[in-house]
Design a protein around this nucleic acid. Structure first.
Lengths: 216, 216
DNA sequence: TAGATTGTTAATCGATTAACAATC
DNA sequence: TAGATTGTTAATCGATTAACAATC
């Protein structure tokens, strides 16, 4: 089956947020050689209700079979398609600091078809530095590079001060999504998708729970 | 005002998830010298409803004043207390790979009172390596170090294969929270808080939106 | 005081769970 | 076929928004 625009407009963020986790569990089951699983078994494994699993999956179609359950390999592959990771994505890194370099060197993304094609930084001291077979380029090259290499996704690991202006440049040259690690929200046109990873906010949530839920 | 256990049990995750963002905006307003703000103004800035802001804040008390709005500095400081970042936290890093090293070198956490005290790895080649004035230690030292230094939070940047066993060790020696970057869910006793940062899942969500919401 | 804006209750909306008929 | 389990509708629950009286 093929997935795309037509139906997905009204998939709630709650559902989208759970899909990668289903994908992860199904991948592990597949690796363990499990061939079929019922929503009930999966619910025990994942600590969510079987109802929710069936409800979520049925947003995209009937992948199961009454009396049998779900074929693990098939469901895994279908969710992969829904998530769009049956296709490869072209990435660039903007901001070659510690975090940026760590992300580029992180092999797991490549395995899923997220391929880094270029690295940019405004610090001249880094120009030409090789990180994973790519040389850090000056920001001036950014626009042309994105156009010429059909880059889909820009990974933003720069200080918030410059994030907004870089996002503007990116928006203007055909990028489709921004994976934003800068500590700010980005204002971009609606056809550009932004996924934020706000690490300090994540740490603050943990801090809150330490203070409040901790040691009952 | 002091915050803590007694009331916070029933604060929903939705609210907790928004607190750090309020905190960020208020911090910026404070830095800009803004002294007061109404829920309506803040709502325009943050693109959420004024109702939600007032509703969220009133879970913790009445911080505003009718006819006036909220005092920025006061509200900022109160949310800081609610989040528990008026106190310092003692952290260790477990897993001194690229990502782990990047996190340790990231100064922003320190600014908020999250202080790295030790670094551990199971790779002997790294023992003694200095990262930000700390030497990488063998895993054997972990338990004693946590106890002796009153470590609150362990940052887990290790492969999923060893994550569960390390989480078990940590659970047993007085750690209170785990900031988990490993690609798996952790089974820990209920008094231990886990905050997951699943980077590949975040990237998959972006991929989904690229495929589905993209270019209307 | 009059105007503004909160704190809070009530109404709405959406997401989760339960139930069960359909069906493999 | 009988048993199991889905797909899907209906019921419940929780979160968001609207409204407004209280009050600075």
């Amino acid at each position: 089956m093929e997935y795309g625009r037509e139906f997905a407009r009204d998939i709630s963020q709650a559902v989208v947020g759970r899909l990668p986790r289903y994908f992860r569990y199904l991948g592990e089951l597949k690796d363990e050689g499990v061939t079929r699983i019922s929503s009930r078994e999966l619910s025990n494994l994942m600590h969510v209700t079987a109802s929710q699993i069936r409800q979520d999956l049925n947003q995209f179609g009937g992948f199961g079979q009454q009396g049998y359950g779900y074929n693990v390999e098939y469901l895994y592959s279908e969710i992969g398609k829904i998530l769009g990771i049956d296709e490869t994505h072209q990435l660039i890194l903007v901001g070659a600091g510690n975090l940026g370099q760590a992300l580029v060197n992180y092999m797991n993304f490549q395995r899923r078809g997220f391929l880094f094609r270029g690295i940019f930084d405004k610090n001249p001291a880094l120009y030409g530095k090789k990180i994973r077979d790519m040389e850090v380029q000056p920001m001036e090259n950014l626009e042309q590079f994105v156009r010429e290499n059909n880059i889909d996704i820009a990974v933003l690991t720069i200080p918030k001060a410059s994030a907004e202006s870089v996002a503007d440049i990116l928006s203007g040259c055909g990028i489709r999504g921004i994976w934003n690690f800068a500590h700010c929200d980005l204002n971009v046109p609606p056809h550009i998708q932004v996924e934020n990873v706000h690490l300090s906010e994540s740490l603050m949530k943990l801090s809150f729970r330490l203070k409040n839920d901790g040691s009952v």
